[in-house]
Design a protein around this nucleic acid. Structure first.
Length: 720
DNA sequence: GGATCGCTGATTTTT
DNA sequence: TCAGCGATCC
């Protein structure tokens, strides 16, 4: 162990060795955060202060949890068993299963995924007569989730919370929330938000249970603390109450998930929340070159309300390439520029896996995909559908859930007619009516209807067969375990045959996925354990192999690093994103800026920022103004290029340049006089007539008569 | 029960 | 522009 400690710098070492009391480690990007966390973990174990099961280690993503587990095992030189190491949700689920009764659930409760949550909410909305047209279910769902993030159960909603929700669902959102929770309980199900909400309630209300965990956990380690929401904070605080040995690692400058309920205030307030806390700053960056760090530092310095940290080069201060800013004509040219640069780097021997294109929004990937396909450069899109979100996997899961919990109505509905059993909406309606009348589950109602002969014909036959099958499969599960049982389910239900008969190009892949599904079952003792794994842990890592360029959103890139990073679309409206700005004002602008900071600090050797002067958004073309973030990075750290350089220093050409050619020097043209005043009537070639509502240097906000509000450069309009 | 038509809306996303 | 949805029709 001594050698592991010796490899750390003084601050890192302090962060590892300060074991007693609360510790906040402010770890800037690339300062060895994971190393500190894992070394600290190993140090606790090796110093004999705690056994593996006496340490609680919490992360946000499964990826981070896996990495920590591997690296701790590495440091110890052996795999470690019995760890309480996992994501907030996985750990909360584990606790909740142990104390399910305290939350009014039985231990085999189902964890619904987003899709089921939404379907359930729609059902409840129908029952509550809330118009789903007027009030989009996803919008209401997100309000409910935000409340759960803040530990607000329906009973705990205050006047202020209701006021903030406004007239959502016609002012009946609170009762909708209550009805939704009641429905979940009736189904013996929870959604993701409930896991932490319920566990926190139990710990708070049941001192004996809390005491048990106090005895158990001597040390708590938390990763990415800046991303925690209020329930997660409460949960941690309860657990840390006795020992006070909680160590949170995070970076306020990388808080980019406020829209998901994360509260940056948690990290900003740490010293008040945990009195006597030691705060340790890690500022030596071992990842990026000096110019990249200088740009990132200058950019993030524009934010207010930071804890304050300055990244500095940690090791060899050798120069390094300046950050490149490329100004292009439109998005196609932007994609061509990136493609060209990738080819050049590849020719120089750089690996494709060490290159990434990081963008603000998912739709931006398309242009790059098309270009890379044309060039024949392999790429991978990170993100997208996860394994368990695929239709066939969700179907298989629904069957499994039905085996574990016959009363799982959502699962029943999903599979009752997949594969086709002649059970249409009419038959399902009959089942629902009966279930509601008897206050039973759909399966029970189905049994009753068949026994009484009320459900006959094709649908009756189909339902009867399904009920018989389910009984037989449950017996198989009992006798022969999950793998055999699920194989029977897929074969005897006709699911496999259905896919074999399917001529669509996706069908073979779906069959493969199901094989993988059954294979994965083998690692689990119980179907229940497997279902938890699938809901909370299972990821999609296909096409992870091979030398490929990475395409992903900036959000997805957090925690990763690449030699070369391309940052396209740095334009006002896209990045910073206009919608974020409209919704959240300065706070959102700062979050956008943190996102830019995250993007830049992913780069080890070089960063290339791009922006296009014109972008097609939906049907029409829009003029784009370079992102204000470009003005916030120091001129001496950058080089400029591209065909349409159009910053305030170098302006865009009035006409398209020859397409497909990236010239070293920009075509320039003198700055026009901004003779257009607020309130002036103007004409724009694409948007028509409008009135200027605001002006900032050469950027004009114009309310167009037909095209709505837009922000354009003054040289694109003329006085009307 | 499935195909077809038209409308709508379109950041970020983990668990 | 274009996908995804619900409503409508066969």
């Amino acid at each position: 162990m001594a050698e592991h400690l010796a490899a750390l710098n003084p601050e890192q070492r302090m962060a590892v060795e300060t074991l007693d009391g609360p510790v906040l480690v402010l770890a800037g990007a690339g300062t060895g955060k994971t190393r500190v966390l894992t070394t600290r973990f190993a140090h606790i174990l090796l110093s004999g202060r705690a056994t593996p099961h006496q340490v609680l280690a919490v992360t946000f993503t499964n990826r981070a949890a896996r990495e920590m587990r591997e690296r701790v095992a590495n440091l110890l030189g052996r795999p470690v068993e019995g760890l309480w190491l996992g994501t907030f949700h996985a750990l909360a689920a584990r606790m909740l299963r142990r104390h399910a009764a305290a939350a009014g659930l039985s231990p085999n409760f189902t964890i619904l995924d987003t899709d089921d949550q939404l379907r359930l909410l729609k059902q409840v909305m129908a029952a509550e007569r809330i118009d789903a047209k007027r009030w989009p279910p996803p919008l209401l769902m997100s309000q409910i989730q935000r409340w759960k993030d803040r530990a607000l159960s329906p009973a705990r909603l205050g006047a202020a919370d209701l006021a903030q929700a406004g007239d959502l669902a016609g002012g009946r959102i609170a009762s909708l929330y209550g009805a939704y929770q009641a429905r979940l309980k009736a189904l013996n199900a929870t959604d993701f938000g409930d896991l932490l909400l319920f566990v926190t309630d139990i710990l708070r209300d049941q001192p004996d249970i809390l005491a048990e965990y106090h005895r158990r956990f001597r040390y708590i380690l938390v990763d990415e603390y800046q991303d925690t929401n209020l329930v997660q904070y409460l949960w941690l605080r309860l657990l840390a109450q006795a020992s006070k040995n909680i160590c949170c690692v995070g970076d306020d400058d990388q808080s980019i998930y406020s829209w998901r309920g994360a509260e940056i205030e948690n990290i900003l307030r740490f010293e008040q929340d945990f009195p006597g806390a030691a705060v340790i700053r890690l500022e030596r960056n071992y990842r990026s070159t000096a110019p990249i760090l200088a740009c990132a530092a200058a950019l993030i310095a524009h934010n207010q309300g930071r804890l304050g940290k300055t990244l500095r080069p940690g090791g060899k201060e050798a120069g390094g390439e300046k950050v490149r800013i490329l100004s292009l004509w439109d998005q196609e040219e932007e994609a061509r520029a990136v493609g060209q640069a990738i080819e050049d780097l590849r020719a120089e021997g750089e690996k494709l896996t060490e290159m990434a294109v990081l963008m603000r929004a998912g739709f931006q990937t398309r242009a790059f995909e098309e270009r890379l396909i044309t060039l024949g450069i392999p790429y991978r899109v990170v993100g997208g559908l996860r394994f368990y979100e695929r239709a066939e996997i969700r179907d298989a899961i629904a069957y499994a859930r039905l085996l574990v919990q016959p009363g799982d109505d959502l699962a029943f509905e999903r599979v009752v007619n997949t594969p086709r059993r002649g059970v249409g909406t009419a038959a399902l309606q009959t089942l629902h009516v009966r279930a509601r009348a008897d206050d039973t589950a759909l399966t029970t109602a189905a049994g009753a209807l068949i026994a009484s002969g009320a459900l006959r014909g094709r649908a009756g036959e189909g339902v009867r067969r399904l009920l018989d099958d389910l009984g037989r499969w449950r017996a198989r599960l009992e006798a022969e375990g999950p793998v055999v049982a699920m194989q029977f389910v897929l074969d005897e239900s006709g699911y496999t045959d259905m896919l074999k008969a399917d001529k669509s190009p996706e069908a073979p892949g779906r069959l493969d996925n199901l094989k993988e599904f059954v294979r994965a079952l083998a690692d689990f003792e119980s179907l229940q354990g497997f279902l938890d794994h699938v809901a909370l842990v299972m990821e999609n890592d296909e096409n992870a192999a091979g030398d490929r360029v990475n395409l992903m959103t900036l959000h997805a890139a957090k925690g990763l690093e690449f030699d070369t990073v391309f940052l396209p679309g740095w334009e006002e409206g896209l990045f910073p994103n206009q919608r974020a700005l409209d919704e959240g004002g300065v706070k959102s602008l700062e979050e956008e800026r943190r996102l830019a900071y995250v993007g830049l600090t992913r780069a080890k050797k070089r960063a290339i920022i791009l922006h296009a002067a014109h972008r097609r958004i939906y049907a029409n073309w829009q003029d784009s103004i370079p992102s204000r973030f470009l003005d916030e990075i120091p001129e001496e750290q950058i080089t400029r290029g591209g065909t349409a350089a159009s910053s305030r220093r170098v302006r865009a050409p009035a006409f398209p340049p020859r397409r497909g050619l990236i010239e070293a020097s920009a075509i320039t043209r003198p700055a026009p006089m901004s003779a257009i005043a607020i309130g002036a009537r103007v004409f724009h070639a694409k948007f028509g007539y409008g009135t200027v509502t605001a002006a900032d240097d050469d950027r004009l906000d114009i309310a167009f008569d037909k095209a709505g509000k837009k922000r354009v450069l003054d040289r694109f309009v003329e006085p009307a």
